[in-house]
Amino acid sequence: MYAQMVDTGVKRVKSREEMSPEERDFQDRVDADIKIEAKDWMPESYRRTLIRQISQHAHSEIVGMLPEGNWITRAPSLKRKAILLAKVQDEGGHGLYLYSAAETLGLSREQLIEQLHSGKAKYSSIFNYPSLTWADIGAIGWLVDGAAIMNQVTLQRCSYGPYSRAMIRICKEESFHQRQGYDIMMTLARGAAEQKAMAQDALNRWWWPSLMMFGPSDDQSPHSAQSMQWKIKLYGNDELRQRFVDQTVPQAEYLDLTLPDPDLKWNEERGHYDFGAIDWQEFFHVINGDGPCNRSRLRARVAAHEEGRWVREAAVAYAQKKTAHKRTAA
């Protein structure tokens, strides 16, 4: 998922008695599944947390265009090229919906982007891994979009109206993303030996980072309880991760590819797959800036923004001239 560790700024969830009348009223609405809208009263910490969460999500969509964009010019057929272009374009569109949702909470897109570029705002750790072969494009669609969908589907029901509506639009497009990824994997897995090896290699590299997308275990996620009470998080990280594993194992089997986890096995009693320990050391290194691509991803974003500055300024200047012109004409 695209917002892995969102700080609520709240140390402890307040009991009902500790809440002010406004807070109690707010919580009642959330509990009754009435959507909170931009103009409604909301606790300051709810607003700030949502800005963090939605903007992290938006930044992830935008930074996520880079590893896949990497292969647009090298896509191996005209059809694959067109599909990948459309897919990456969709992600840009998702960023746009989400920036708009975040803007309803009082920050401009320019401010949000500034937070990304200064390193203040985070984005999903997954996009700091490199896309090395064409099979990575398959693995990203299958696993990364797959993991994102797991979370986004639940967020369609979140308490904040604009965020919930953005999620509904996004989810409509996401299943195509996962399908095109799986289709690439399938073609490779059924192709020449080298192609199958390419698919296996991509799976080996993307599997664990995909599991990390769900964020630290629930007992390591101090802010989960508050976010869940606010209904901006609907399920625990571990629960979603488990669902993802259960869904993905048979898909890998169907491809005749092996998941890189010797501890992975069906647990009859639990009715779920058991899987091995996740390397959280790696996760924290990557999310704190030391992944293989953190620097290059951020540099690419900053470069696009800085090199585009004169274009944006010209558009503003031109629009102002036009309105001034209209005014004198009127």
């Binding site: 935008i62 265009m65 880079l66 964009g69 647009i72 010019t73 005209l78 059809k79 090229k81 067109a82 272009l85 459309a86 990456v88 374009q89 840009g92 569109g93 960023g95 746009l96 920036y99 690419a300 470069a303 696009a304 923004h305 090199e307 585009g308 500055r309 274009v311 944006r312 558009a315």
Partner: peptide, 29 residues
């Protein structure tokens, strides 16, 4: 044009230019 995807001067332009790229690749096909 597809080289611009993800690197446009502003998000809206990134999407619009990608549309043009998609049209042209469709026509080429």
């Amino acid at each position: 044009l597809s080289e611009w995807c993800g690197h446009g001067p502003v998000l809206e332009e990134d999407l619009a230019l990608t549309n043009v790229a998609l049209d042209l690749i469709g026509q080429a096909t």
